[in-house]
């Protein structure tokens, strides 16, 4: 029997595997022993507030920071190998583009840096322009593009060499809702093609929409990992969340909320209940204690609830 081609062997390995990654900047530990695996065709969300260590983790994967400990492998190859570099695509958080070059020239430049030449380069540039819906602006200089277009080009530049694994570091940062939707469509198209994606964001709704699994990161550690349902179930089981807003918030109210097992955050008290009927008891108890409620709502816990549950604070703090 003929041996399997090398490519097949390589592609049969895990697209990305991170083992015990640690990165310190002086006294600050930005990434604290993170281990993670990305499956083929999966979109894994890294959800966490600013400064949680998401970008450092991404930079560690693409070899832009030297880890103090741990190992990153891409299809079994060390992350700093040429093979890994070709397999990885990186969309940095900053607009890493040449502002005085056109869209096409930018893509050509980054394509050439990845070793693409002639027909392959031309094809890749055409694909990227089409994918990012910038074909009609191909010959405009970057500085003349709108913010959303720059973001799309920034993403396209990370995919010019058609990588198998793509790392997107907050690709929607600073764009308007319309552009954000367009970017979602672009990412969903990649998912449809079976690309493995790591997607960092601090927008819960993005993670919920795009990601198969979500890793919640805080202070350089993964505090929860799984599908949205798994995470919610792990934190809340079958319980629901009651959000209560008080007319007057003072120390007495906060103490009362804590006493009832709730969390007070950003002017809103959050309680979990097993059955909807428990809301009545909660309202009675508030009335008896003399606390006037302005608004009460019941909802199913989401990723933000999970984050709050594990960290005691909101995602966008």
């Amino acid at each position: 029997m003929a041996p399997e081609p090398m490519l097949s062997i390589a592609t049969s390995l895990q697209p990305l595997r991170i083992e015990g990654l640690v990165k310190r900047f002086g006294k600050l530990t930005a990434v604290n022993g993170i281990s993670l695996e990305l499956n083929r065709g999966e979109c894994l969300g890294l959800l966490g507030p600013n400064g949680a260590g998401k970008s450092t983790l991404i930079r560690g994967i693409v070899g832009r920071v030297i880890p103090d400990a741990g190992k990153v492998s891409v299809f079994g190859d060390s992350a700093d190998s040429v093979g890994a570099r070709m397999a990885l695509g990186w969309v940095p958080q900053d607009l890493a583009l040449y502002p005085r070059l056109t869209c096409r020239e930018n893509l050509e430049a980054f394509g050439q840096y990845h070793g693409l030449r002639r027909a392959a380069l031309k094809t890749a540039v055409a694909w990227c322009l089409d994918w990012s819906a910038l074909a009609d602006r191909a010959d405009d200089t970057v500085k003349n593009l709108s913010g959303g277009m720059k973001r799309r080009l920034n993403m396209a530049a990370g995919l010019i060499h058609r990588p198998k694994v793509i790392l997107m570091d907050e690709p929607t940062a600073g764009v308007d809702p319309q552009s954000r939707n367009r970017i979602f469509e672009m990412i969903e198209k990649l998912r449809g093609e079976g690309m493995s994606i790591i997607y960092t964001t601090h927008y819960m709704e993005e993670a919920e929409r795009l990601c198969d699994r979500v890793a919640i990161i805080d202070h350089g550690c993964i505090i929860a990992l799984g599908t949205k349902d798994e995470l919610v179930h792990a934190a809340f089981a079958s319980r629901s969340e009651v959000l209560a807003r008080f007319e007057n918030v003072d120390e007495v109210v906060i103490a009362w909320v804590n006493q009832r097992g709730g969390l007070f955050d950003n002017g809103t008290a959050r309680f979990t209940i097993e059955h909807a009927t428990e809301i009545g008891g909660l309202l009675d108890a508030a009335a008896k204690s003399g606390h006037e409620l302005a608004d009460v709502s019941l909802r199913k816990p989401n990723l933000e609830s999970v984050f709050l549950h594990w960290t005691g604070r909101e995602l966008r703090d």
Binding site: R85, F110, Y113
Partner: peptide, 10 residues
């Protein structure tokens, strides 16, 4: 940040 992107290529 362009330098980072360039250095993450070949």
């Amino acid at each position: 940040g362009t330098l980072d992107r360039v250095l993450s290529s070949r």
